[in-house]
């Protein structure tokens, strides 16, 4: 009852100190009204509350309704992921938040444009590998290619790693977009 009680005080007032859950990566689809500042609200929420953003894509998807779809990949403990979803849902322009990872029935894709500079055998090898990965050549000079590749992030990572010794000089990636399988919509 008083302060002499012999209880170790290694923890704090704050929940993080006692959090023993493992962090997970989740992909969230966030349907929002496309209005000025809406992206700032979403990003500000992440930075203000100390959440991570691994990937972020945003574009207007329904022009008539002025709605945009934001796809954000984030990491956190299950409790934090739940908080992120609830906090996003609380924003006034947010219509829906769907956890694509939790639903377990979603397809995720990413597009990358990969610039490779080289001559001779390396150039031939790059082209051969691109073919194996179903990457398209979208620009070519006598000393460079730009490949366009789509797929899961792992596939892109792998392609980029293979291109590295073959003269990779620049990569531009869209970040992840996701959609649920089957006939149901958001």
């Amino acid at each position: 009852m008083n302060a002499n009680a012999n209880i170790p005080s290694s923890t704090s007032h704050y929940p993080t100190a006692t959090n023993v859950q493992k962090p997970e990566t989740h992909t969230l689809s966030v349907l929002v009204d496309n209005e000025p500042g809406v992206l700032a609200r979403v990003i500000g929420l992440f930075s203000g509350r100390g959440y991570n953003i691994e990937s972020l894509t945003v574009s207007e998807t329904e022009h008539a309704k002025h709605q945009s779809l934001i796809t954000v990949v984030t990491t956190g403990t299950p409790m934090v992921i739940e908080q992120i979803k609830n906090q996003l849902d609380r924003l006034v322009p947010v219509h829906r938040v769907v956890d694509m990872t939790l639903s377990g029935r979603s397809i995720e894709r990413e597009l990358a444009m990969v610039k490779v500079r080289g001559k001779g055998d390396e150039r031939v090898e790059a082209l051969r590998l691109a073919d194996a990965f179903r990457a398209r050549v979208i620009d070519a000079t006598t000393e460079s290619f730009i490949f366009e590749i789509t797929g899961k992030s792992e596939k892109i990572e792998q392609f980029v790693a293979l291109m590295l010794p073959l003269g990779l000089v620049e990569v531009s990636r869209t970040g992840i977009v996701a959609i649920a399988r089957g006939p149901d919509t958001m």
């Binding site: 009852m1 008083n2 302060a3 002499n4 009680a5 209880i7 005080s9 923890t11 704090s12 007032h13």
Partner: peptide, 17 residues
């Protein structure tokens, strides 16, 4: 309730602690 303590570890005004 001092920092880092639980509800049952209160200090009282006249507890002499």
């Amino acid at each position: 309730i001092p920092s880092g303590k639980a509800h049952n570890e209160m200090i009282l005004g006249d507890s002499g602690v």
